[in-house]
Design a protein around this nucleic acid. Structure first.
Length: 429
RNA sequence: CGGGGAGUGGCGCAGUCUGGUAGCGCACCCGGCUGGGGGCCGGGCGGUCGCAGGUUCAAAUCCUGUCUCCCCGACCA
C-alpha cells in the first residue's frame, strides 16, 4: 500500500502561527493540506485520500436514489446568469476572455444544469430526473477563514432534481433527505438536520445538515426532538427567544451550539426553470415548467468537521470510514534488525491481503513515529519491535480509545490479518 | 467592507524603538552514539530581511507607496 519513505506526509511539530481553528492547525500539522493563498488550499496525498473517502460515500448514496453522475464546467458564459438574475451576486467571479466575451466562474451549477435540461428534456416521460456531479466551486468570499472550513475554491457534490410538479419535487426532496441522513451517519460525524431559512432564494423549503463543533460559524438551537438554525428558531411560533441567548420551547430550555454547515437541501420550485425556459409537455399537450430541487454537500467541510469533533491533544482521531489508512504500521529498530525484518514481512502480508496500511519504515526514533501516528490519527496502530519477536504478538492500539487492544499473532497469514483487522474496525467508533 | 495584527532560511521566532553589513530553536545534510513516546555529541548547508522607490557614508531598522497573509465583526444564493 504505502511506505512512509516513499510518501509525502510533511508533518509539523508546531502549528502555523496564525491558525486558530483546531482543524486548521491539525490538518496542516498532520501533512494533509497546505495553503497557497487566502482561501486556496492544496490537498496533499493523505488529505486527498480522506476527501475521496467522503466523495465515495456520497457517490454511493446518491447513486442509490437514482442520481446520474455527470460533469459540468466551472468556466461558463455569463448569459444564463443574467437571465436568472444571479450575475449581480458579489461573490460571483466574473471575467472576460480575449475576445471580450463575458464569462463567470460558477459558484453552483443551477444555471448550467437547467440550461441542459431545457435543451434536452421535452416530455413528461423523461421526468423525474436526478443529475449530479462533484465539481469545484469558486466564490469570491469576503473573508476566507479556518483552513478548509471557508475557502474561495472547493469541491462540492451538487445534485439537482427535475419533476413534473410540486408533489414530484417533494418526493425527490424526501429521497435526498434519506440519502443525506445515510451519508452523514456513514461518515461517523455527530450531526443534526435542521430546518433552515429559505433565504433570498425564495424557495419552498430547506434543511441544513449541521455538524456541531467549536469552529462552527453558525449556531443551532437544540432540544428534545427539536433542531433548527437560529434564524428559524427566532421566527418559530412555538419557540420563545428572550432576545438574548436563551431559547425555550414547551417549557424546555433549548441549547445553542456552534456548528458547521456540511450540507443543505433546497426546494427550488420553478425559480430557475422559468427564466431558463426549462419546460416539458404533459400528457394533455400543455407546456409546463419543470419543478426543481438542489442539494449540496461539501466533502472538505465533512473532513474538517471530523477533525474538529474527534481531535485530542495528540492529534486527529478519524472515524473508521474517513481515515486515510485503517492501519498505521510502526516498525521499530533500524533497517537490517530482526524486528524490522519481521515488520517488512508483516507489511507484505497486509498489502497482499488488501489492507489499507501506512507503513512507517523511516529510520527514525520510536517517539517520533508514535507521535506522528497519533497526529495522523488512523484508527489502528500496529507496532512491531523486539517485544513482538519475544512474545510472537503484534501490538495493537486504538487511536480513539487510546488503549492497547489484544495483540495479533505475528505468524498469521494475510487473509487472517484482513479478517482480524476488519473485526477490530467493526468494533471501533 | 469596518476594526486589529503580521511579513526576517522549510517551520516557529529574536533583532526594528536607539541605522553600522543578520541571529536562535526545530527541521535538513555528513559522521558517531542511542533505539518502546519527538534522544545525545560533533561538523555543515541554507536568508537580495514581501516588493518598489526615497533619505543616508551606511537601511531588516528611518520615510513614502504597494502587495500579501492572519484574527474579530459584517456578509455567506
Amino acid at each position: 500500500m504505502t511506505r512512509l519513505t516513499e510518501y509525502l506526509l510533511p508533518t509539523l511539530k508546531q502549528a502555523p502561527a496564525d491558525a486558530e481553528a483546531v482543524s486548521h492547525k491539525l490538518m496542516v500539522r498532520a501533512g494533509l493540506i497546505r495553503q497557497i493563498g487566502a482561501g486556496m488550499w492544496t490537498w496533499l496525498p493523505a488529505g486527498w485520500r480522506v476527501h475521496q473517502k467522503v466523495v465515495e460515500i456520497v457517490r454511493e448514496e446518491i447513486d442509490a436514489i437514482g442520481g446520474r453522475e455527470m460533469l459540468m464546467p466551472v468556466l461558463q458564459p455569463a448569459e444564463p446568469w443574467r437571465k436568472t438574475g444571479r450575475l449581480e451576486i458579489e461573490e460571483l467571479f466574473k471575467l472576460h476572455d480575449r475576445k471580450g466575451s463575458e464569462l463567470v466562474l460558477a459558484m453552483t451549477h443551477e444555471e448550467a444544469v437547467t440550461t441542459h435540461v431545457a435543451q434536452t428534456v421535452d416530455s413528461y416521460r423523461e421526468l423525474p430526473l436526478i443529475l449530479y456531479h462533484f465539481q469545484v466551486k469558486e466564490r469570491d468570499e469576503p473573508r476566507p477563514r479556518a483552513g478548509v472550513l471557508r475557502t474561495r475554491e472547493f469541491v462540492m457534490k451538487d445534485s439537482y432534481s427535475f419533476d413534473r410538479d410540486q408533489a414530484g419535487m417533494d418526493e425527490r426532496y424526501e429521497l435526498h433527505v434519506g440519502a443525506y441522513d445515510r451519508i452523514m451517519r456513514r461518515t461517523g460525524l455527530r450531526f443534526y438536520r435542521v430546518e433552515s431559512d429559505v433565504g433570498m432564494m425564495g424557495g419552498l423549503g430547506a434543511h441544513e445538515y449541521m455538524a456541531p463543533c467549536a469552529a462552527g460559524e453558525d449556531e443551532i438551537v437544540l432540544g428534545e426532538g427539536y433542531a433548527a438554525n437560529v434564524e428559524v428558531a427566532r421566527t418559530s411560533p412555538d419557540v420563545q427567544w428572550d432576545g438574548d441567548g436563551a431559547y425555550t420551547r414547551n417549557g424546555e430550555t433549548l441549547r445553542v451550539e456552534p456548528a458547521i454547515e456540511i450540507g443543505n437541501i433546497f426546494k427550488l420550485g420553478t425559480r430557475y426553470s422559468v427564466p431558463l425556459a426549462a419546460t416539458y409537455v404533459d400528457q394533455h399537450g400543455s407546456e409546463l415548467p419543470i419543478w426543481m430541487g438542489c442539494y449540496g454537500i461539501g466533502p472538505a467541510r465533512i473532513v474538517a468537521a471530523a477533525v474538529e469533533q474527534y481531535a485530542d491533544e495528540d492529534g486527529i482521531s478519524w472515524p473508521v470510514a474517513l481515515a486515510p489508512f485503517r492501519v498505521h504500521l510502526v516498525g521499530l529498530g533500524r533497517a537490517g534488525t530482526p524486528e524490522r525484518e519481521a515488520t517488512e514481512q508483516l507489511y507484505a502480508k497486509l498489502v497482499q491481503a488488501g489492507v489499507e496500511v501506512l507503513y512507517d519504515d523511516r529510520d527514525a526514533g520510536p517517539g517520533e513515529k508514535f507521535a506522528d501516528a497519533d497526529l495522523l490519527g488512523c484508527p489502528l496502530r500496529l507496532t512491531v519491535g523486539r517485544k513482538s519477536l519475544q512474545s510472537g504478538e503484534i501490538e495493537v492500539r486504538s487511536r480513539r480509545a487510546r488503549e492497547q487492544l489484544a495483540g495479533l499473532p505475528l505468524q498469521a497469514d494475510g487473509p487472517q490479518f484482513a479478517r482480524l483487522l476488519d473485526e477490530l474496525c467493526r468494533d471501533l467508533p
